[in-house]
């Protein structure tokens, strides 16, 4: 089976009139992005200005140049790799387990009526309780090690993915089921080659939500469990009054979140282009 592989990269119009003409063209083709960049730049400049003019105390609020400096020192000394790796391990394992468990579970719950009816109220209730509330219980059961942090990530990430996958299955076009039955497709072929690809747009939306919640889950767990990771790093830096480092940690987190979101966007464009119109 082959899924779509048509990549529709936005066309960057290269002109031979020199670089300035190229930038003008790029802005013309990417007005939305250009305004976004402008917005970020404005905030950074205002921030820097308030710091330079002494409007706010730099030791409390830091400023962009100091954050950049802190960033450079964190990476050149290698000091950041520990915390970054810690969070990466939690989110990585947490998401991996979430994906492996939630997608098949969501597919099955969507298909088996009795199971769906049995689990739907529970899942809705659990999903409406803020997941952070379960952290003390998780600590009580599993201790303060990395396994508790991974568990919170899973707990945070799994429900949106199950709910989205199940919703996708329940919206399945009944024609697809009839085609599969008529072609004498076995259960495995049906799940793998019909149900999964048909539900993929919903699954990817679920993954997008899951990742956002997994990141929050990891950070919160680090705040409470003090075992390392970016959350712990930012917390420690703040308590040491090192706002430059704290801000640098937040910036790294922001970059990680943006990169992951972008990755999902790419997957969506690549594998679900057929559902967009």
């Amino acid at each position: 089976m082959s899924l779509a592989t048509s990549d529709r990269a936005p066309s960057t119009t290269e002109s031979d009139d020199g670089p300035s003409r190229g930038i003008v063209n790029w802005i013309r083709n990417h007005t939305k992005t250009a305004y976004g960049v402008l917005g970020v730049a404005t905030v950074l400049i205002l921030w820097q200005l308030t710091a330079v003019t002494g409007l706010v105390n730099v030791t409390i609020a830091s400023d962009p140049t100091r954050v950049i400096a802190a960033e450079i020192s964190l990476f050149s000394s290698g000091q950041i790799w520990g915390p970054l790796g810690g969070t990466a391990i939690e989110v990585g394992w947490g998401m991996l387990i979430t994906l492996v468990v939630s997608i098949p579970l969501g597919l099955i719950l969507g298909r088996v009526r009795a199971l769906y009816d049995m689990t739907e109220p529970i899942i809705n209730i659990l999903n409406s309780v803020p997941y952070v509330l379960f952290l003390p219980v998780i600590i009580f059961w599993f201790g303060i090690g990395v396994q508790s942090r991974i568990l919170l990530v899973i707990w945070a990430a799994t429900l949106p993915l199950i709910i989205n996958t199940t919703a996708g299955v329940r919206n399945l076009n009944s024609d697809y089921i009839r085609v599969a039955r008529m072609c004498c497709a076995g259960r495995w072929t049906f799940y793998r080659s019909v149900l999964f690809p048909a539900t993929l747009p919903y699954i990817l939306t679920g993954i997008r939500l899951s990742i956002a919640r997994a990141l929050v889950g990891a950070i919160v767990a680090e705040f409470f469990l003090s075992g390392g990771g970016l959350g712990y790093f930012v917390q420690t830096a703040t308590s040491n009054f090192d706002m430059n480092e704290a801000m640098a940690g937040i910036l790294i987190m922001a970059v990680v979140a943006v990169v992951l979101t972008r990755l999902i966007g790419r997957l969506e464009r690549r594998y679900t282009h057929w559902s967009q119109g």
């Binding site: 089976m1 009839r178 019909v194 690809p197 048909a198 594998y271 679900t272 057929w274 559902s275």
Partner: peptide, 13 residues
Amino acid sequence: LVFQSPSLFPWRN
């Protein structure tokens, strides 16, 4: 069976 509506899988060429 050739269905009344084409009912092709949109994710397959």
